[in-house]
């Protein structure tokens, strides 16, 4: 391996070479060992936490429907029995601001002609305005199942604990249930515009106590 003169019987070089390789080997293992000291702290190891268990889940809280519009309710204030017209038509004098966009439904599909302060299920059962969801779910039965499971509609509060549910008309206008577009909040700043306050003192916005 070396350029030197013919080897002598007692080759010093071989001994030194062996020693060097040996020391290098030990050094390499030592370095790897040093790096491995904490290897049990892998990426999916958390610390030891005290044990916590889930208590029994409290009952959900139903968020009540908004009270009916006081300008109109109770309906019986205006709707007297004598002059009721059950014919589907364009509304002109009253409720002309009402947008009716709910399939082919007409007022009396849901409201009762005789008892104008009640809603009428398909089996002619009358229910109050506060139980409107029973009326909605006659047609939208699949939504009821999803709502019960928490997948349709909004829930707030606790994923484990008291949670607020919302009945249909909290979010949907029953006369025009489709979601109306709303104004979005502002878009994020593109990276070119993220300059921070490069020239500001880092402590500038800190709140100093008097």
């Amino acid at each position: 391996m070396e350029t030197e003169a013919p080897r002598e019987p007692h080759d010093d070089g071989a001994r030194i070479r062996t020693t060097t390789w040996f020391v290098l080997g030990i050094a390499a293992m030592a370095v790897l060992g040093l790096f491995s000291v904490r290897c049990e702290l892998g990426p999916n190891v958390a610390r030891e936490y005290p044990s916590r268990t889930l208590p029994p889940e409290p009952q959900p809280v139903l968020m009540s429907a908004p009270p009916p519009d006081e300008d109109y309710y109770p309906c019986s204030d205006c709707h007297e029995l004598e002059d009721r017209n059950p014919q589907p038509r364009e509304l002109e004098d009253e409720h002309d601001d009402l947008e009716l966009a709910h399939g082919d439904l007409w007022c009396l599909s849901c409201h009762d002609l005789a008892d104008s302060d009640s809603l009428k299920l398909s089996d002619e059962t009358l229910v109050g305005f506060d139980e409107s969801w029973r009326l909605c779910t006659q047609c939208h039965g699949n939504k009821l199942a999803e709502w019960r499971a928490g997948v349709h509609g909004k829930r707030t509060g606790y994923w484990w604990g008291p949670k607020e549910y919302r009945t249909c008309i909290v979010c949907h206008n029953p006369h025009s249930p489709a979601w109306k577009p709303i104004e979005p909040l502002p878009p994020p700043r593109p990276p070119q515009q993220i300059a921070g306050r490069v020239r500001a003192e880092p402590s500038e916005v800190r709140h100093e106590e008097p």
Binding site: E2, A14, I16, R17, T20, L24
Partner: peptide
């Protein structure tokens, strides 16, 4: 230089 000493290190 001591070749027997430094060559293994160079090889490494």
């Amino acid at each position: 230089y001591n070749a027997a000493f430094i060559l293994p290190i160079i090889f490494l």
